[in-house]
Computed example of a mutant assay.
Amino acid sequence: MKSVRRFTHDVLCLWQIGDEKRDAAVLIVDELAINAVQHGRTDMTLLLTLNGAVLRIAVADTGPYVPHPDAGLDPDEHGRGVGIVKHLADRVEFHEGARRCLAYAWLRVQSLADSSVECGAAA
């Protein structure tokens, strides 16, 4: 997952998104990617788009949508990711298709193009 976090961090730095929103977006991507890896079958796709002040994060995988954690899993270890995403994002949607699950998260951001954005190493 480190490469997904790094990619997201670097793109948002390029788009000059400030630290707070960039960190939230990186965490959203991380949680959605972890779900895709855990529940998907083979492929995962990440799409980041910036339209004005709205960042859209889309993660697609080839597995079914899993709305609730498996009853056999320890609740301290599983099931909080979607809650974290819903807390950080302004809007979240999940769509299950015949062969894939799509997760979307929208986040209102402000580009800091007129000021300096410090972009150190990603987590």
Rank of each mutant, 00 (worst) to 15 (best):
residue 15 W to C: 09
residue 15 W to S: 05
residue 16 Q to D: 06
residue 16 Q to Y: 01
residue 16 Q to P: 00
residue 17 I to C: 03
residue 17 I to N: 00
residue 18 G to P: 05
residue 19 D to M: 05
residue 21 K to I: 00
residue 21 K to Q: 06
residue 24 A to Y: 02
residue 27 L to E: 11
residue 28 I to Y: 07
residue 32 L to A: 03
residue 34 I to R: 12
residue 36 A to H: 04
residue 37 V to P: 02
residue 40 G to W: 09
residue 40 G to E: 08
residue 40 G to K: 05
residue 43 D to I: 05
residue 46 L to M: 07
residue 47 L to R: 15
residue 47 L to I: 13
residue 48 L to S: 10
residue 49 T to W: 10
residue 50 L to Y: 13
residue 54 V to F: 08
residue 57 I to S: 04
residue 57 I to C: 09
residue 63 G to T: 06
residue 64 P to G: 10
residue 65 Y to H: 14
residue 65 Y to D: 10
residue 66 V to R: 07
residue 67 P to F: 07
residue 68 H to D: 14
residue 69 P to W: 12
residue 69 P to N: 13
residue 70 D to R: 12
residue 71 A to P: 15
residue 71 A to H: 14
residue 72 G to K: 15
residue 73 L to I: 08
residue 73 L to F: 02
residue 73 L to G: 03
residue 74 D to W: 12
residue 75 P to Y: 10
residue 76 D to I: 02
residue 77 E to K: 13
residue 77 E to W: 06
residue 77 E to M: 11
residue 77 E to C: 08
residue 85 V to I: 09
residue 87 H to C: 08
residue 89 A to C: 05
residue 91 R to Y: 02
residue 92 V to P: 02
residue 93 E to C: 08
residue 94 F to L: 02
residue 94 F to K: 01
residue 96 E to M: 01
residue 99 R to M: 12
residue 101 C to A: 03
residue 102 L to R: 01
residue 102 L to I: 02
residue 105 A to M: 06
residue 108 R to N: 04
residue 109 V to E: 01
residue 111 S to H: 02
residue 112 L to F: 03
residue 115 S to R: 15
residue 116 S to P: 04
residue 116 S to H: 15
